[in-house]
Computed example of a mutant assay.
Amino acid sequence: MLRVHFTSGDLARTRIADGPDPLWESVLSLHRMQERRPDSVPADWRKHVAQQAAEPLRLLIPLVPARGYCPDFLTPAGAAEGFEAGLDALLSTPRSQLRSEIGRLGANGPLDPWTRSVGEGAAPALSRLGTALRDYQRIALGATWHRLRARIEADRAQLARTQWYRGTEAMLRTFGHGIRWRPPVLECEYPVDRDLQLEGRGLLVIPSYFCRRTPVALADTSLPPTLVYPATTTHSTGPTASLADNADTAHLARLLGHTRTAVLQSVGGDCTTSELARRAGVSLSSASEHASVLRGAGLISSSRRRNAVHHAITAVGLALLDGRHHGPVAA
């Protein structure tokens, strides 16, 4: 059981992430790759990753064992700003933290030379780690990130709306998946028994596609408190990566342009213009301009709520992203 202890200040500082975290999804998908249950992940996705990402898997799986401790440095807070920002933060981890966390990983069993070199902070090892993570993310998640994000967006948006209109305590009561709010403690089913004292720091709640059964928290309680939870979604139709997906994305980029395609992929189920700019990595004015064009083409819808404009992808927009729309698209 994981017990997260709140104060009144923590309730005010608790927030919902505006989408899945790319490094958490990478790490959790590596867990799923090691499971033998046939329904763990879609079979075609598993086959694609196993065939195309053999070298990244060889390097990453020793750092991300199927059970037990997983180093916190693999999921830095900087990934909230995108994969590359998170990777920069990961590769800048202090050597003392690398040494400590890889040493703790060694309690699970003997470490291979590669893993020990990462713990020593050796530049060649960190360079290889960065390459492996970038290649794995591209192969396993890159072509299907917009689908993964869209499938958890309704769950994330519901939590955010509940918090906005009814408060954080009401939001904490809406969780499923063995998460119970018993004021002032959030109780979560967990592999080990531990307590997390927020002490005024608040809690970042991150929805996840690849998180299954129980939520996940950072092991080091001195790091920013984070809870990754299994978003309600239909895993039987989960993300599948294939060469056709990559081709569809390339065709869409030729139609709309790379930036506008990225903006469309970033909309998800609901987001404000500022959230859209952050997700797509563009300026606020650029996000607003691209949203206007996409809205005119019928690919997204927009509505004003209080002081913000919210955008949502339409059925036509989602079909276009999924490569199933073959009719004309308005300019």
Rank of each mutant, 00 (worst) to 15 (best):
S283R: 09
S286Q: 15
V192N: 00
Y209Q: 06
G68S: 07
R13K: 15
H310I: 05
T314W: 05
A125T: 06
T233D: 01
W181K: 08
E169C: 09
Y190P: 00
D18V: 07
P230N: 08
S26V: 08
A122F: 04
R46W: 02
R3K: 15
L74C: 11
P20Y: 03
M171H: 03
L91N: 06
E25H: 05
N246W: 10
G167M: 09
V192E: 14
G142M: 04
V228G: 01
A54V: 13
T232I: 14
G119N: 01
H48N: 13
R13V: 00
L126S: 14
D245S: 14
G238D: 07
L320W: 05
D135E: 15
I179F: 01
G82S: 12
D245W: 10
A132Y: 04
H311W: 00
S8C: 00
R67M: 09
T174E: 15
R180W: 12
A291M: 03
P20V: 15
R295H: 10
A319Q: 14
H177W: 10
P225E: 02
W45N: 04
P215C: 09
L223G: 01
S266C: 05
V4H: 08
R304A: 13
L321C: 10
A66T: 12
G130R: 05
T174I: 00
M171C: 06
I61E: 14
A241L: 07
V263Q: 01
P230R: 08
V27K: 00
H311R: 05
I61H: 07
V118D: 03
F6C: 12
R138Q: 10
E35G: 09
G142K: 02
T237P: 00
C188P: 08
T115D: 01
P94E: 07
L74V: 08
D220I: 08
G298Y: 01
A122W: 02
D18K: 02
G298F: 01
L203E: 07
T261M: 10
G68F: 06
T214Y: 09
T162N: 00
S92H: 13
S117F: 02
E187K: 11
L294S: 05
M1C: 08
G109T: 07
G296A: 04
V267H: 02
G317A: 11
G257R: 01
V309A: 11
A125Q: 05
N246D: 13
D322V: 00
D44H: 13
R149V: 04
S8V: 11
V27A: 03
R13P: 00
I179W: 01
L318W: 09
L256W: 07
P76N: 11
L23C: 06
A231G: 10
S96R: 14
A160R: 12
L186T: 14
E120M: 13
C70P: 00
